[in-house]
Amino acid sequence: MFKIVTKRALNDSVILMSVDAPFIAKKAQPGQFIIFRIDEKGERVPLTIADYDREKGTVTIIFQVAGKSTEQLSKLNEGDSILDFVGPLGVPTHVEEDAKSVCVIGGGVGCAIAYPQAKALHGRGIDTTVIAGFRSKDIVILEDEFRAASNELIITTDDGSYGKSGFVTTALEELITSGKKFDEVIAIGPVPMMKFVCSVTKKYDIKTTVSLNPIMIDGTGMCGGCRVTVGGETKYACVDGPDFDGHQVNFDELMKRNSTYREQEHACRMMAQAK
């Protein structure tokens, strides 16, 4: 059993929890993920590690209520326990030793995963620009944290209700055309966002890393559910990723495969709401 140490709502549907998991906290690195199973009848759900505290032995997760399991998790409180919590899985994000300037882009709840990246890069003394995109002002998360972990922070909202109006791609392209040089871009968010970021960076030939979130069960390379096509080859996001070269990823295929259980997930949500 893994005890929830802190719980904080970041907006109406996004929640931060730190969980007592000393073994994982000791080894976790940015880009890695955990899998939780809430109780005996629960699914195994992967979530990227948002932060960790090696001394306190806690691992922080940030999640959006999106299905039955995250709905259940959101109802637990400080002091409650999660049945299973396993990790750190996947390969840590690798940024070249000699990188001087990196742009970290987060979309929506993907910002939760972009944050530890920015924090680590900024901590290494790398010039770190953060572009954090949201649908609207009321769902903006981690603004203070990002500000502390970046040299420049640009917040965008689709509806213009806060920060810069428009998509993250517009902000990125403006920075590039105004002469800002990036050695690398890290993009984490909804699959379409990552796809469009990659089409911009490809134009300017900037190395781009994306963090993928395919369907997954075990997280150790056993089920093959998380297979993605990267550079024409089949890769397993759980053991080869979840980070990949964004210019090589077949995003359209990933979007389709992620919809495999959509009807059943939808039915689950409807039932959960009816209860």
């Binding site: 390379g221 056993m222 093959g224 089949t234 077949n250 295929e253 919809s259």
Partner: peptide, 21 residues
């Protein structure tokens, strides 16, 4: 644990999975 696939066209379609999964 690592499941093998055939490497044929269409293995990434929805509805294809390994026996392990």
């Amino acid at each position: 644990g690592l499941p093998n696939f055939m490497g044929i066209e269409g293995e990434s379609l929805i509805g294809v999975c390994s026996a392990n999964e």
